[in-house]
Amino acid sequence: MRYISYILALLAGAALSFEGAIYGELGKTIGKLETSFYNFFVGSIILGLLWLFFGKGKLSYAVEAPKWTLLGGVLGVVYLTSIVISVPFVGVGITMVAVIIGQLAMSMIVEHYGWLGSKKSRINKEKILAIISMVIALVLVY
């Protein structure tokens, strides 16, 4: 069953690329910040509907949960804004490489120490090799 999660994650990445290409066009007309606002705003509406019909969890947990677990939305905005600001200065290629390396380094550290409530999973040889292969792939793409 594990491999289904890998397929979901692959699809998520594919969706992100299509999204980026399409929003690039939209951003030219309505502005970059406005584009991400559109995304979050209409996304909230879609999810509100999904939640009404299919939500089985407990949204009210937001009130009792530790406050730091509510930071997901803000962090998404920081991520997006950092990209929007940086692209005109250093270009898309370098921006993406920097983002991805930050993402990989951070995930490895977070998981190694089990920070932010993630399941603790030690760094091992295979994981380091995976990251080296990713860096080589990145250099080859750009």
């Binding site: 950092s82 990209i83 940086s86 930050g102 993402q103 951070m106 409530g117």
Partner: peptide, 15 residues
């Protein structure tokens, strides 16, 4: 700064 952006994205998925 963008490197920080990547870090926040990872933190987001963990949180």
């Amino acid at each position: 700064f963008t490197f920080l952006g990547g870090i926040t994205l990872s933190a987001q998925s963990a949180i």
